[in-house]
Amino acid sequence: MAKAKGKEKKSREKESDFQERVVQIRRVTKVVKGGKKLSFRAIVVVGNEKGQVGVGVGKASDVIGAVKKGVADGKKHLIEVPLTKANSIPHPSTASGGGAKVMMRPAAPGTGVIAGGAVRTVLELAGVKNILAKQLGSGNPLNNARAAVSALSGLRTLSDVAQERDIPVEKLYGV
């Protein structure tokens, strides 16, 4: 019985490794035959600050239920982010989601996370410490968060590119 409790504790610790931050909670209504039905939509960013991050959306009749559903959705849509030794991204990247466009550039150590809104939350929970980012177009938090995740998922390291091309990493430098 003691072993079973130990396993449960480890699995809980593994799950609690992820942090979750609520980006937005919005009250939404649906017009039905008897009047208006009130519910809540929560946009949640989930990440472990070690290169894994995801954005989730949850809808429920109460705020707590919406946040729980958003966390579950975010964990389903996790992506891996390649980080450099300086906790930055390997190369500049842009992506769009809906009407939002996000531009990201790597930065030198000590720069910090220079980004705003939902993009900042996504980058912090991904574990990026030095980056320059800009939101262009729409200010919608959901579209900006999805655009940020899309930009991060498109990143590739030198070793990834060398492996795809079946050449050694040294050859990429042109030596």
Rank of each mutant, 00 (worst) to 15 (best):
58 G>T: 08
22 V>R: 05
36 K>T: 06
131 I>K: 03
118 A>G: 07
91 H>Q: 02
92 P>Q: 04
12 R>S: 13
20 E>S: 14
111 T>I: 09
117 G>N: 10
145 A>C: 07
8 E>D: 13
18 F>C: 00
138 S>L: 10
103 M>Q: 10
29 T>E: 15
106 P>F: 07
69 K>E: 15
161 V>R: 08
118 A>H: 04
113 V>T: 08
7 K>V: 13
170 E>A: 13
133 A>R: 02
93 S>W: 03
27 R>I: 14
36 K>H: 05
82 P>W: 06
45 V>T: 06
1 M>P: 02
49 E>K: 12
138 S>R: 08
26 R>Y: 01
150 S>C: 08
12 R>H: 11
76 K>I: 01
2 A>D: 12
35 G>W: 06
162 A>I: 14
125 L>T: 00
95 A>S: 07
17 D>A: 13
90 P>L: 00
29 T>D: 15
73 D>T: 01
60 A>V: 08
6 G>D: 14
105 R>V: 04
4 A>F: 05
74 G>F: 01
116 G>K: 05
54 G>S: 03
142 L>D: 01
80 E>G: 13
63 V>Q: 03
172 L>A: 05
81 V>D: 13
51 G>D: 14
101 K>H: 04
23 V>S: 09
30 K>G: 15
101 K>A: 07
119 V>M: 05
151 A>V: 06
102 V>M: 07
96 S>V: 00
30 K>M: 15
131 I>R: 02
130 N>Y: 05
115 A>E: 11
42 A>R: 08
87 N>G: 00
5 K>Y: 09
44 V>Y: 08
79 I>T: 11
174 G>M: 02
22 V>I: 10
96 S>I: 00
109 P>R: 10
84 T>R: 02
109 P>E: 14
83 L>V: 06
52 Q>M: 14
105 R>A: 09
166 D>A: 15
119 V>T: 12
144 N>M: 11
76 K>A: 08
64 I>Y: 06
57 V>G: 09
109 P>F: 07
27 R>Y: 10
72 A>C: 01
159 S>H: 14
4 A>W: 02
21 R>A: 12
14 K>N: 08
175 V>Q: 12
